[in-house]
């Protein structure tokens, strides 16, 4: 009880300070000039109409490579932490219903296709490699939940992940050799608003999509319990 009161008091104090400092930030006005530069130059320099994508993949390409590495480390670390725990967790569960089993079987392909659409069109529409990869992983999550004893091959997941990661770095090194900067755009910009435009952005987003999709699928499989079903 006394703990709740202290917490509320602390939060009251923090909220007063936060509100008084944040209230002085104007709302709805332009604040950075670098954002203006990106908006004006994105089509000319990168060919990508989605400015957020061109910032993430080209202007801040190093940062995205690091981000993908962080996600890879988290997935690997989670596998290491949960290693050996998997066999212990066994619990009897009710069998998934017929509607679940049949429905997910048909939804699976649609979800995979939608995920691929989102990461292939990252330079044209809102979306990109990260959300597309998560949609792909969601398709596998449906199968984990609804199909009895469904497992993805651990080796296959690792293979797709490693291949996508190496392709990303290889594209970066190709840029270094051909244009003179790591992750430089060596394919030209193309016609804006076409699928085959924006140089290396779609290629990089496809590798990111595959990498994130396989990583999160592996992560979900690691966290899942081995279940026995009541027959």
């Amino acid at each position: 009880m006394i703990r709740n009161i202290f917490a509320l008091l602390l939060i009251l104090v923090i909220s007063v300070f936060l509100a008084s400092s944040i209230a002085s930030i104007p709302f709805g006005t332009e604040k950075t000039t670098v954002g203006k530069y990106y908006l004006d130059k994105t089509i000319e320099e990168t060919g990508s109409v989605n400015t957020v994508t061109s910032v993430v993949v080209l202007y801040r390409g190093f940062d995205t490579l690091g981000e993908v590495t962080v996600l890879f480390l988290a997935a690997t670390g989670l596998g290491a932490i949960l290693f050996g725990l998997r066999e212990k967790r066994k619990r009897k569960k009710e069998r998934p219903s017929l509607i679940m089993r049949t429905g997910t079987r048909y939804l699976f392909t649609a979800a995979l296709l939608f995920g691929a659409y989102v990461f292939v069109h990252g330079h044209l529409t809102p979306g990109g490699g990260f959300p597309g990869g998560v949609i792909v992983a969601t398709a596998f999550l449906m199968l984990f939940l609804a199909q009895e004893g469904f497992r993805v091959s651990e080796k296959g997941v690792k293979f797709v992940e490693a291949l996508a990661g190496m392709t990303y770095v290889a594209i970066g090194i190709a840029g270094l050799l051909l244009v003179g900067s790591f992750l430089g755009n060596f394919l030209g910009t193309g016609i804006p608003n076409k699928l085959a435009s924006a140089g290396i952005i779609p290629l990089i987003y496809i590798t990111i999509g595959l990498k994130v999709g396989s990583e999160i699928t592996g992560l979900l499989q690691n966290m899942r319990e081995t279940t026995e079903y009541e027959s």
Binding site: K31, K36, V52, V55, M223
Partner: peptide
């Protein structure tokens, strides 16, 4: 159009957040 820089940074932050949450849950 609005400023793209905060959106790009939040995209990064969301991905890192997923990684942190997954580790914490493990």
């Amino acid at each position: 159009a609005v400023d793209p820089v905060p959106q790009a940074l939040v995209l990064t932050a969301i991905v890192i957040g997923v990684a942190v949450t997954a580790m914490a849950l493990a």
